[in-house]
Design a protein around this nucleic acid. Sequence first.
DNA 1: ATGAAAGCGCTAACAG
DNA 2: CTGTTAGCGCTTTCAT
Lengths: 342, 342
Amino acid sequence: MASIQDVANLAQVSTATVSHVLNDTAYVSPRLRDRVLRAVRQLGYQPNALARSLRTKQTKTIGIVIPDITNPFFPAVVRGAEDVLSSRGYTLIIGNSDNDVEKEAQYYRTFAARRVDGILFIISASTHAPDFLRGHDAKNTPIVYVDRSYRGATGDVVLADNERGAYEAVSHLIKTGRKHIGIITGPQVLRNAMLRLEGYRQALLEYEVELSQDLVREGQFDEESGYLQAGLLLNSKSRPDAVFVSNALMTMGCLRALTERRVRVPEEIALVSFDDLEWFAYTSPSITAVAQPAYELGARGAEVLLKRITGELTGPYRRLALRTSLIVRTSTAPVQCENTTF
Amino acid sequence: MASIQDVANLAQVSTATVSHVLNDTAYVSPRLRDRVLRAVRQLGYQPNALARSLRTKQTKTIGIVIPDITNPFFPAVVRGAEDVLSSRGYTLIIGNSDNDVEKEAQYYRTFAARRVDGILFIISASTHAPDFLRGHDAKNTPIVYVDRSYRGATGDVVLADNERGAYEAVSHLIKTGRKHIGIITGPQVLRNAMLRLEGYRQALLEYEVELSQDLVREGQFDEESGYLQAGLLLNSKSRPDAVFVSNALMTMGCLRALTERRVRVPEEIALVSFDDLEWFAYTSPSITAVAQPAYELGARGAEVLLKRITGELTGPYRRLALRTSLIVRTSTAPVQCENTTF
DNA sequence: ATGAAAGCGCTAACAG
DNA sequence: CTGTTAGCGCTTTCAT
């Protein structure tokens, strides 16, 4: 592949001149300018980004690590990030951590070796900063934590307003006539999971509905535990008339439990999921859900990161909480029939 | 960030020695070796991948362009690719083309500038090679076409066996008692779409079921056209007792049409989708589908690419067709009731 | 307005 | 065995 030297030779100018016309970094007479451009075209010259980066000390590259690209929530945030990044001339390199801190560390090191200009991190489940970030030089390569963070995170944070989202979901349940509302929470070591539970509590408090510990069940954010905890909820003596499930995977498990037991939704039990999946609109009944602003999370995260990189944003780390939106579907339809029965 | 020179100074050796111990490229006495390693640790030295690549002329980077990471099929192939790539020390850079040739060209240029070692391409809808690939130097940076290709593609090809998958789906429909089988095809400029139609034809031929042109409707692989064509199929005088839909998006549209018209599935009409989505198991009825080996497509694609890069594979381009699998669910349950009715 | 040359951080001959 | 050194391809003073 042709180098800048080849172009210079062909155009009969110095490499400096070539560089100047390509980067518009100094005035070059139309005559030479034209010769350079012609040579560039003739050779199909494509500047070597590696050499340029080595020299300029910026790679125009952002690294992103996500738990699993196969979980539909993450592609949406990646997409948001990629859109703003590519429009600003940045390239995205990606890694799947599988919620494994060791893999996270691995990608972190790769990113460091490649001298990425910044990092977008959707960290794996954890409450405190992992070791590999201890010595991180946030000045040189800023990090933005997306969707999740831990206290004392050394970077800006962009996430969904978990508490408010949960609050709205449970309020909705109450307003549609449910009084006996169960919750399947996420693992309480995760801040997100805690906040969703907190939103649930707030709603009950606000509407003066009594909170029963029997109706609070801790899941693990996976399908299996959703199935399990839903089963326990259904078998308990105080069977709820509504369930708020803290994420989509557990909702799928819950659905399975419901189907197996032939529980009628929404007549016997209403259902709200935190996290919306496209197909929740296609099940019967369709499922009411709290939609997270996944795309925006990625886009805003990338914007903040870029601002840190350019120095447009400085000072203490920011924390952005993006609003969720409640998508009301039939799984929480008001129980009309029962009223008319009386 | 510390450079190899810093390490050399601290360890009181030459940079060559440092390089040698780090890359295990020559025997170094235990004494020096130890001093080097100590210095590396002390400085938290991380070799600069850019400088290394500039010198060695390999970046250990693969570029992948996909239409849209938001479509669940593609993350699965990306995941497959990423798994094999990262296990071999390669890094993945990603781009979304939105089926736009201009964006594809854009990413292609970026990849070229970054001197990626190879490219994984899920091309946008097209029958022939786009201009930007005309002058591609396949010797230097191999391309593997995944899932789709065009004739005369200058690279290996790894895709699903579309024809066979369609054949099996339609055969299944016939075996479960349907005789009047409609198809919603994809745009017939796409090879994949053509092959799926061909599989449909083969199955009818094989089982001596007459093919009626009324029952062949061309969609555009999007939700809307699925809805539209399903509607036409349902309204036609010769209403089918089964429909084979050529991709998942159109299946969603078809579902919508079916639901609106309160058509009972599978009693009135059986349904098979080419492309399986996770949630097809959760609808009622659950949906029979041809599952594509998405993960394997990515993984095998990456493997072939790596073999080209290492020179382990040479000569004429290979073409790999991976088998699909038919997931039988309730949308194609045999129509028992009707039989007993007689 | 243009060019010479240094140097980014690393690897790989080559010498010794 | 270890060190010297010449680049890889580019940008950027600094002269002219």
